[in-house]
Simulated scan of single mutants.
Amino acid sequence: MTDTYDGYERLKFDWPAERVLRVTMENPGRMNAADSVMHGELVKVWRDIDEDPRVNAVIIRGAGDAFSGGGDLELVKEMTQDFNTLNRVWKEARDLVYNVINCSKPVVSAMEGPAVGAGLVAGLLADVSIASRTARIIDGHTRLGVAAGDHAAIVWPLLCGLAKSKYYLMTCEPVSGEEAERIGLVSLVTEPEDLHDKALEVATKLAKGAPGAVRFTKYALNNWLRMAGPTFDTSLALEFMGFNGPDVQEGLASLKEKRKPNFDPESPL
């Protein structure tokens, strides 16, 4: 008998507690960067979780010492050269945001190291976001040469206000886990060695709660995000328009120069 999650390649699954599913993003040697396979799987997994009666709560984390190192540069390059790829990734980016928001099961994220790109979408849209003090949260859109679209335009202003959002989204300055908690970007901050235990503690508490009450509370609160739908759609369109412009070519060249072999941990996208 096949399991719901058997077909996944970049996402790994385990059950650390009763009715708690843990999803681990894994792209070895790439700091869990979201390549074409992972990007698609991050879209699909939330539908599978939503329909899985065994799951009451979810943890999303990265393998090793990184949450997600950003977008795969080969995929970005392909997007600038092939319309079908660009169109597919645009649809996936839209669905990823809405699928996390609409997943009825509560999601807990455990972020350490670099937290960038598609992984960060799930990290910040999680119902309870937990970061280690040494996490480096970066929205790398403008560094790449495109507008800060997808989740950023809807969730950052709600979490930490417009002034902080403009600063971090336009400058791509990294936000430490400690600073992220201070400005309200994440729910909790922990010491690095305590991160995964804390995530499991919170997820277990949610899994043991009244399922209907927890899920409908999530649904009601996420209406704030759904109300921002027009802003989200516009920001996503502006982002993907940029892949046909000159800025992204300069951004790609700069990032390729900065990234060292085996993915320099100081150089996430």
Rank of each mutant, 00 (worst) to 15 (best):
T4E: 08
Y8Q: 09
E9Y: 12
R10T: 09
R10P: 07
R10V: 09
W15R: 14
A17F: 10
E18V: 13
E18M: 11
R22H: 07
M25D: 07
E26Y: 11
E26C: 13
N27S: 14
G29Q: 03
S36F: 14
V37Q: 13
M38I: 10
G40F: 11
G40P: 04
E41F: 07
R47L: 11
D48H: 14
D50A: 11
D52N: 12
R54Y: 10
I59R: 02
I59Y: 05
I59T: 03
A66Y: 03
F67D: 03
S68D: 10
G69N: 02
L75M: 15
L75W: 10
V76M: 14
K77L: 12
E78K: 15
D82M: 02
D82P: 06
D82A: 07
R88G: 03
W90N: 10
V97N: 04
N102K: 06
K105D: 02
K105E: 03
V108Y: 00
V108H: 01
V116T: 11
G119S: 03
L120P: 01
A122Y: 00
L124I: 12
L124Q: 04
A126D: 05
D127N: 09
D127M: 03
V128W: 01
I130S: 03
S132Y: 04
S132K: 03
R133D: 14
A135T: 07
I137C: 08
G140E: 05
T142Y: 10
R143A: 15
L144G: 06
L144Q: 05
L144R: 04
G145L: 07
G145A: 10
V146F: 09
G149K: 08
D150V: 15
I154E: 04
P157M: 09
P157G: 08
L159R: 15
A163T: 14
L169N: 12
L169M: 12
M170P: 00
M170F: 12
C172H: 14
P174C: 05
I183E: 08
P192A: 06
H196T: 04
D197E: 13
K198Y: 06
L200C: 01
L206G: 01
L206T: 02
G209Y: 05
P211Y: 05
A213I: 13
R215F: 02
F216S: 07
R226E: 13
M227R: 14
G229D: 13
T231M: 11
T231A: 11
T234P: 00
A237D: 14
F240S: 02
G242M: 06
D247L: 14
E250P: 00
K260H: 05
K260T: 05
S267P: 00
P268Q: 01
